[in-house]
């Protein structure tokens, strides 16, 4: 189904994972975690900009695509004084969150990657997993156990 996905290098796979995590992150938690670290110097390549992304679905869930509706996304790009370029893409309209996502993306490409992974990415991932699991647990409690009624005609 669809066009085959390009094969990504391990570095690209890792970057895809952390950018996705940052895009869906809780802005307050990201600010708290990143704010506790040394802030790097950077210059803007593209200042934060709010825009719309057209979300597509598939007919019947598996067929050809159609346009469902847009979602808000904020993006920006920056370059650290040490040269790494970071891109921030976050859901919603929070420009500060986009800036922080881009900072983390840039820092993850340099010598501070381990520090960022432990102090920022790991807690964000844990928070998202906890939210997902909590909802799945409540859903599981509403699962129906059917039993077939025997018609009493004998």
């Amino acid at each position: 189904m669809g066009k085959p996905e390009a094969v990504l290098s391990p570095e690209q796979e890792a970057r895809k994972a952390w950018m996705g995590l940052l895009a869906k992150s809780d802005a307050a938690l990201l600010a708290e975690r990143l704010g506790a670290l040394d802030q790097p110097k950077f210059e803007w390549l593209r200042r934060p900009e709010v825009g719309g992304v057209m979300v597509r679905g598939r007919m019947g869930g598996t067929g050809a695509p159609f346009n469902l509706g847009e979602m808000t996304v904020t993006r920006c790009s920056l370059r650290l004084a040490t040269g790494e370029v970071g891109h921030g893409y976050v859901q919603g309209r929070d420009k500060r969150q986009a800036e922080q996502a881009a900072l983390v993306d840039a820092l993850m490409q340099g010598p501070r990657a381990d520090e960022l992974r432990d102090a920022v990415l790991a807690p964000l991932e844990a928070a998202q997993a906890a939210t997902r699991t909590a909802r799945a647990a409540k859903a599981a409690a509403t699962k129906v156990d059917f039993f077939t009624m025997v018609r009493g005609e004998d």
Partner: peptide
């Protein structure tokens, strides 16, 4: 809103 782009079809 400026249109940033379009998504891959969502995988329901």
């Amino acid at each position: 809103l400026p249109r940033i782009g379009h998504s891959h079809p969502v995988e329901t």
